[in-house]
Design a protein around this nucleic acid. Structure first.
Lengths: 137, 137
DNA sequence: CGCAATCCGTAGCCATTGCTACATTTTAGA
DNA sequence: TCTAAAATGTAGCAATGGCTACGGATTGCG
């Protein structure tokens, strides 16, 4: 329900809050990707994407709707709110930088794709900037 | 209880299982660090380290004891089992590589420390090898 | 020794994210 | 149209990891 994550110690913000934020990032990113590719985003598509049951997706979509990141009506496609679209844009760009970066340092495409999925959520602004510099240089 | 994480789709293994594994990695690493620094590892030290309550630590220690990673008796210091020590060694080495790597690409120490904490769990063997190559080259 | 402070365990609550089973709504085809 | 399949929702369970409150164990100090 809250907009802001409670400030904990800086290094170990890997708490429940943080994990929920990662989920939010993954979901808005996936929704944006799926809409970009197929025109609309369905619960079952997300379920396939994340390899979880449609029930899990359904509940998370509900939560993200409360957080004003998504919008959906029963039995209808899922859409991003402006807030969600903004987040998705940021997340997708960051993800792309991380993926390109891993490939640039010599990781094969397959493993770069796998690891970038997990790494992206932990890349802060400074690290992201360093990766961009590396890619440009 | 299980040794093996159930195999899901490769990219999105970021499930509850995976998260629990991250916790295990963080804890054995922290226990090893604390023992190395102060000779013994207490519940409250872990609680301070992760900035959580001692109750949370206590329950997780119990779980990791069931998984044969830790060993502790009530009101006694926490120790690593051989299995836990092996994991800790691997995790600490990987963490160090990630930290050194981030610094090498130009991230300041403070942010490198923060981000490496989160990134380390998602660095696969291929990415780790690429980081090592970069550090050597 | 004994008591107070500190440390740790237990009880019991909540949120998140998995699941299966079953109910309901849409949609498409006969 | 009308019915069956596909999609989605709901109910209810488990595991993990947050928490406060409270109680028992250890330890150290007067």
């Amino acid at each position: 329900m809250e907009e802001k994550t409670k400030a904990r110690s800086i290094p170990f913000a890997r708490t429940r809050d943080h994990h929920a934020n990662e989920t939010a990032e993954d979901y808005v990113e996936a929704v944006a990707d799926i809409i970009a590719k197929s025109g609309e985003c369905r619960v079952l598509e997300l379920a396939r994407h994340f390899n979880v049951s449609h029930v899990t997706v359904s509940r998370i979509v509900k939560r993200l709707q409360n957080e004003r990141l998504l919008h959906s009506q029963p039995y209808r496609p899922i859409e991003l709110t402006p807030k969600g679209a903004t987040l998705a844009k940021r997340v997708r760009e960051r993800h792309q930088v991380v993926l390109d970066f891993l490939i640039a340092i010599g990781v094969d495409k397959r493993n770069a794709e796998i690891d970038s999925e997990g790494i992206e959520h932990h890349v802060g602004l400074k690290t992201l900037a360093a990766m961009k510099r590396f890619l440009k240089g």
